[in-house]
Amino acid sequence: MNTILFQLSGALATILLAFTVGMFYGGIRRKIIARIQNRVGPPIYQNFLDVIKLYSKDTSIHHGAMQHMGPVFAITASITSLMFIPVLNGDGWFWFKNLNFSGDLIFLVYMMVFGSLGMALGAGQTGNPNSAIGVTRGLSQMVGYEIPFVMSMVALMAQFHTTSITGLMNIQMQENTWLMFSNPFAFIAAVLAMLGMFHYSPFDIVHAPAEVASGPVSEFGGKYLGLMMSSGSIFAFVKLTLFVDVFMGGAANLIELVIKTFALYLIPVLYGVVSPRYRTEQAITYFWKWPLFFGILAILWASF
């Protein structure tokens, strides 16, 4: 009984941590962008205000059951993938262990797609053509970046003969190195794929305001949008922590985790500030050129 309670509170703490960190990263991103654009920018806690306000808004839109389920799917996917991510490595804070003993890379790669699919179902139900086009774009772009990402993950699994994230982290601790040095090609391919995963510029065609209003979330206001924002923040944390775990040896404590994830987070943010937006087919061409090449190199590197 105690273990269940313990695990539940641990899970809640993890969610809270992921939510807070993700929200603050979003706020810092807005601040960084504002500073690059010569502005003061909003306070870094602005995203919290936005989310609380969105939760306090009325919602009087009814397009059918799937519309209500879409955001729920998204946040479910985020939280489920979060549960399988080892937040800290080794004998780090035991609260954040959750289910990571079975943290399986293959499962996670699939779980991360689940949210987008649920979102697609929800957006499809709203009947807004902007949503439909946004979803189509999102799914096609996903095909683009998933392939190099999966290839880089497969390379790691083949190289170290384990599909467990904890296993990969343990290898990094034993050999006292980071996998981004053991298999640099896998790291490059994964980082390039991560640019696409974050849906920041230049890969933000999914919700490009100048074309499809805000894409899949066009018809979602108030609480739905709040759910989407929370899910997005948690998911950002999931992605960053996964990358830190797999490539940068994980983190021994929370401060190290924040530093490492933030350093990684700066890549898509800064790349996004100075890039125009790719069209869908251009984005897919991009992903199937260099990232795919590096993915193949990574697999070759792993096999020889």
């Binding site: 690059i36 010569n38 510029s201 230049p202 490009a208 890039s275 125009p276």
Partner: peptide, 16 residues
């Protein structure tokens, strides 16, 4: 022109 291509930074600079 740059904003419709998704590059908002130039727009912010030039309008400023």
């Amino acid at each position: 022109q740059s904003g419709s291509a998704g590059l908002y930074t130039v727009g912010q600079w030039s309008v400023g």
